[in-house]
Design a protein around this nucleic acid. Sequence first.
DNA 1: GTAAAGCAGTAACCATTGTTACCAACAGCG
DNA 2: CGCTGTTGGTAACAATGGTTACTGCTTTAC
Lengths: 205, 205
Amino acid sequence: MLQCLNPALRKYKKNEYLSVQGDDFYALGILLAGEAMVVKDNAAGQRTIMTVLGEGDIFGETAAFSGEKKWPASVIAQRNCQALFLPPEKITGNCCRQCPSHRRLITNMLRIVSDRALALSKKVEYLSIKSIRGKIATFLFEQYQKQGSATFMLPLKRNEMAEFLNVARPSLSREMCRMREEGVIDFHRSSIKIKNVEALKSMIE
Amino acid sequence: MLQCLNPALRKYKKNEYLSVQGDDFYALGILLAGEAMVVKDNAAGQRTIMTVLGEGDIFGETAAFSGEKKWPASVIAQRNCQALFLPPEKITGNCCRQCPSHRRLITNMLRIVSDRALALSKKVEYLSIKSIRGKIATFLFEQYQKQGSATFMLPLKRNEMAEFLNVARPSLSREMCRMREEGVIDFHRSSIKIKNVEALKSMIE
DNA sequence: GTAAAGCAGTAACCATTGTTACCAACAGCG
DNA sequence: CGCTGTTGGTAACAATGGTTACTGCTTTAC
């Protein structure tokens, strides 16, 4: 079976990175020996520990089958580690002649469930932020990155945005206006301009 | 391919239930025609709309491959609907001779990713509750159901419980004591007794 | 063009929750 | 037994965010 999967075995010293957040994703990981930490950095550079991996634990399983082909978090060796990496195609793969449509079905299924998990994990991120300002900053910064320009249109109305961020609409308005007064952003209705990216970043979290 | 999967086709009139939250889960659904709503009821009887399904949308995909074999939400026809139901085993199934270990691998993978999605959706539920009291009530009620008795031990220390619910520890203590004063619960350290289940339920959400 | 509906900003007030700091109860240990 | 560290309750105060209600600006429909 292992031959069929053709996994890559790698060794890491303490504090080495098994994977780096944002890097291209090629292979699902299995920690064979040692201990590693899954950490997520946000835009402000703050780091959150997601989990600690022990021997036998799998990492990157959500990204493996989703549409997103970047590592959603970094994995850092806490001690010397050994890890196996296997490309997700190998798992769903047709090493043992199966009907192609069946294979397609399984792949789709995995992708659907994984995408769902990714979306939920995004939602958890937003909900875990306590201040409205932090939520706004995170939201805007993400839009800014996605749209690539400092001036863009918000994809949601205030109403919807408030619901999405789980806050009251007037509170959202109030806070956005404060941020405008402070010169961090400028906006009118749905069009928005980020005037000070660094300041915005620092408000994240 | 469809023969291989052997799906059940069912028709529903407006307002009929395609699935009922808490019922045993046997088959994954695909909405072929019509429109349906996915709703989640909480213990207090309040209903949240999760999504609206259109033609071609899949429902129950997370439960299908996870360890949990109950419907996590209800699906209600908004208009006359047609839906296809197929048992998840058929998807992962060996209709086309594949090596058993490979099949095992795929099933495990699906289960892992699905369980992850379920856990995240649970977390979202907790984080979406705004009042501390609501969080406590939800948490306690869930423990109560899981442990089956009105007197039980909390699995977390105050510290950890506060972190889990994403609130400050003193605020948690304060609120728990208020609930004790009101006669809804009684507790000492980690041992807790639910004195008024109905009152507790009504505090959920 | 005008009425009606929906959307967004504003302000005052109030409730809830976080913060900080301190204290009491308890567990483990010599 | 008393020391120490941990855990949990308490209280005062500050800050944050929700509520409500009103306003004016846009958009849509007729």
